[in-house]
Design a protein around this nucleic acid. Structure first.
Lengths: 379, 379
DNA sequence: CTGAAAGCGCTTACAG
DNA sequence: CTGAAAGCGCTTACAG
């Protein structure tokens, strides 16, 4: 198929070579300089100010209609698109939101990011996404770079780090950003800065523990994430509390800190499958891990939920699609994303807002009452 | 938990109220103006130029070490972060890549975006993501807005539209962007503009058709996407050609244009389950649809692959995780994302580059040889 | 090597 | 209502 050729007949501004200093505009090859507001104004035979007013006050221009028409026509003919950076610099406003998250490839973050991008679009804002891969030094680096972009807001998504000292320089950056009029929103993990959307991890996994205990299980194991993440800690803590509420506890050696990936679950499954006295129920603090766990147990000939029940946390789309479908704590990611942007839009930053979001226990096929013989064996 | 209080003891520039005109800097409330290079230069007692040189030529500064130290110290103390917009305006360079895709919540795009964000980061570039939800008018709107950002490159990801007229205004925008030195990369769908990464949809589904035909299937159906998308068209076309290669053809009424979602697959499953003479093999041009199809067939009591084999296209992570695991055409999304950014980095835009990417047929458990009784019934 | 100054492309008080 | 001009915060040729 032949590539289409470019229409080069349009009248483009035929400016002479720019002035001595500041020779920044590229004229190499066929490249032409981008159309400027000045070019539009010249073609429309109006002043810069008028051109700017016509183009910016959409519909609300109160001047002579003739001028308005000329400006609009010139802009359309020249294919004018304002220089965002010049606008931002001159008006000290920004239409960008910076989004800092752990890993966009993770469905959990992809969904949250999707909601944030969509809500932002509805407000006429752009989202610049950076991924930190759960590395505080990367997080610091990107927050700094993002700050240079002078976004309207920076949304920090995902779990925070337990080690406050690692976060201190990041906090300093965010505080500076706030002091200069930026909005900081901390989503789903408290960071001690800015507005917060708090996901009630603890109460979510606590309630899940109740539900599982009420199925008759007494021997539990937990797969949680790296110990340095607050989310991993809180979900574990809530689960432990929930068991305590039922007079149960997690035996020593039953808490496993694994990679927050499918592979983490697969590896743990081998370990559990090989145990002489297996738990009858495993709680994985992250759905991806739970999915790996189920697959791994099955591969090792362990029936889920016949021999071992598995529950997760997050309710990513995958949860409902695997076999058996995963019992989990559902997190309203869409809502969280929306709320995050709404907080980012709040003008008055003198008040820190905090929104609490609850998870919902959703029971599916991956959990079942404790197997009779195990219960008997136990008793 | 008590929120931490902010350290307000740092020495910040104590500038007087700015000049008459251009009063843009906000001083409301506790807000202070952002630290400028001029503030750093003043504190370090050097000129603006020197401060700029020290901060920009990392390590390569050849001037007096004393000056360098003073500038660095001042920048650190004041928490200076350069104004990205001023830099972009003054130097006519940009560190941003614009990414236009259909829907970030779709795993296919999330993976591609992940690879693009990661590769861009390695090159010191930011990615701004916009989603069009497969609406050409949205696409036009966002390409325009993106152009205002003066990014280094715009990556258009996902299928193109068959209707060229809908794409014409978008093409005009992209062409103008290119003419002013921007790089356009069209990923996985030809758009007649810029560099291209071409996914060989046709040959991929053709090869899949061969493989399925060789399992003995003769009665096929196809679930493809909206007729206006080139990807939907090409995958269907390739599959049809592949069947032809084996002397087979798609019966009338066996091609279904469905939503490219799980729901699209679920709905189609009901229809197929109710057919008096079902196909023995269904090809869904998108994995999410295939997954919905399998779940839907199972819900309607149809055994997969015992009664009906199902194959997809894409090999998103979900494919390997459902039961039965999905046979599909694997697309190297990570590689595609990487290559897209590499193309975006190419300085010389006089040559259009085109990279061809092949899919790989991966057979899993969702497809099986045609059931014996069906074969007999057929013969 | 260092600094004074022009320029990047806009917006917006200030005059007329 | 409209325009001339200053200013946003940088970079970078040009002089010294």
């Amino acid at each position: 198929m032949q590539r289409r050729t470019v229409n080069r007949t349009l009248r483009f501004p035929d400016r002479p070579h720019p002035r001595r200093a500041g020779e920044n505009r590229r004229w190499e090859g066929v490249k032409r300089a981008a159309v400027r507001l000045a070019d539009v104004a010249a073609q429309a035979q109006v002043s810069l100010a008028t051109a700017s007013r016509v183009l910016n006050s959409q519909g609300g221009y109160t001047g002579r209609p003739a001028l308005r028409e000329r400006v609009l026509a010139a802009a359309a003919e020249l294919g004018y698109e304002p220089n965002f950076h010049a606008q931002a610099l001159a008006s000290a406003t920004s239409t960008t939101i910076g989004l800092v998250l752990h890993d966009i490839r993770d469905a959990y973050f992809a969904l949250m990011a999707g909601a944030i991008v969509r809500t932002a679009e509805a407000h006429g804002l752009f989202v610049t996404i950076v991924c930190t891969y759960r590395d505080p030094s990367q997080e610091l680096k990107y927050v700094k770079l993002l700050r240079a972009q002078r976004p309207r807001a920076i949304i920090m998504a995902g779990s925070g780090f337990i080690n406050r000292s690692a976060f201190e320089p990041i906090e300093t950056e965010l505080t500076r950003f706030e002091e200069t009029g930026g909005v900081v929103v901390s989503v789903v993990g408290d960071r001690g800065v800015g507005h917060r959307i708090v996901l009630e991890n603890e109460s979510g996994s606590r309630e899940l523990a109740h539900t599982l205990a009420d199925l008759g299980h007494t021997r539990f194991a937990v797969a949680t994430g790296p110990a340095r993440l607050t989310t991993a800690r809180d979900r574990l803590k809530g689960f432990r509390l929930g068991l305590q509420d039922r007079g149960l506890e997690l035996p020593k050696g039953s808490v496993h800190h694994v990679d927050m990936t499918r592979e983490g679950g697969l590896r743990l499954a081998e370990l559990i499958a090989a145990q002489p006295e297996r738990p009858t129920c495993v709680f994985a603090a992250f759905d991806v891990v739970a999915a790996g766990l189920i697959a791994g147990l099955q591969q090792n000939g362990v029936d889920v939920p016949g021999e071992v029940s598995v529950a997760g946390f997050g309710d990513i789309p995958l949860a409902a699609q695997i076999t058996p479908a995963l019992s989990t704590v559902s997190v309203p990611l869409e809502l969280i994303g929306q709320q995050a942007v709404e907080l980012a839009m709040v003008e008055d930053s003198s008040i820190r807002r905090s929104i609490s979001i609850d998870g919902t226990v959703v029971m599916r096929a991956s959990t079942a009452p404790v197997p009779a013989r195990v219960a008997a064996h136990d008793g």
